[in-house]
Amino acid sequence: MSEAQLDAPKVVQRSSANLTFRRLMRDPASLLAAVFILALVAFAIGAPWFAGWTGHDAIEQYRDTGLSPVGLPVGPNHEFLLGADQLGRDVLVRIAYGARISLAVGVAAALAASFIGVTIGMTAGYFGGWIDTVLGRLMDLVMSVPFLLCALALVSVFGPSLWLSICVIVFFSWTTIGRVIRAETASLARRDFVQASRSLGAGNLSIMLRDILPNLSVPIIIYTTMMIPNSIVFEATLSFLGLGIVPPTPSWGGMLAEAGANSIYLVAWWLVLFPGLALLGSTLAFNILGDGLRDALDPKGRRVKRRRKPAKPVTEG
């Protein structure tokens, strides 16, 4: 054991949650992202309120007011704040209802995938041996599958639906976190404190839950956060290809797909801009928050900013 690696211990009196929070609060980008996400959640929850306020339903087509005499959608005006689509539906209300789908799919898929990934990854990493070989191969296998093509194949047989989308997303995204957790668990399981617990007579389950799981909280939080935007994009992509949410239920990907069909968006820019911004904003916000969380939870990767000029000369003693 080298001496040099064990530098003088730093006495940290603040709790780690407290420290994380303080670091996060110091990062304006993360703060902004968190505010955006909260607003988005409020927006999604308040979708019926928007419907009531505008007097527009999400699915109903307002052919009289929403379409111009030649049948083209009207742009943003005082009645349709974000314009109307090619069928005369209110874009604002549809985006609000679409936010529900995106958030629900994003969060549900991320949580489910994270749960599966953590369970399988921990099992593989902790037990090692043939269990690890089998589970590791399973992860390799899932990662070697052309997922979008398989999603296509599944939809062609079972027809598009919300549940199928979630299942497909979960099935193809648990491996990322699974691999990370597997590697982390394997290295934790070799640590002395696990040996110590075992030498005290602790059982496997007890060691996994009490000794290993708490030490995995950082990668679990980070990777689950990072999986949310990926799931949102995945769902939007499926809907964009007509494989996800079934119209006329509003979803951001579906709205963009309808805008793209017949290139209608070239004359009605608001059909792309607003759902596109909603989608981009959400993924960006979650990604920024994920980055911020990683920096705050795992400060190893961070470097302290260099001061431009040396401070005043040392005058001690």
Binding site: V272, L280, T283, N287
Partner: peptide, 18 residues
């Protein structure tokens, strides 16, 4: 990096076309 990771391909594509 953040923008690239967050941009759904089809949104960027439609934006570019427009």
């Amino acid at each position: 990096i953040l923008l690239g990771l967050s941009f759904p391909t089809f949104v960027l594509g439609m934006l570019a076309l427009y």
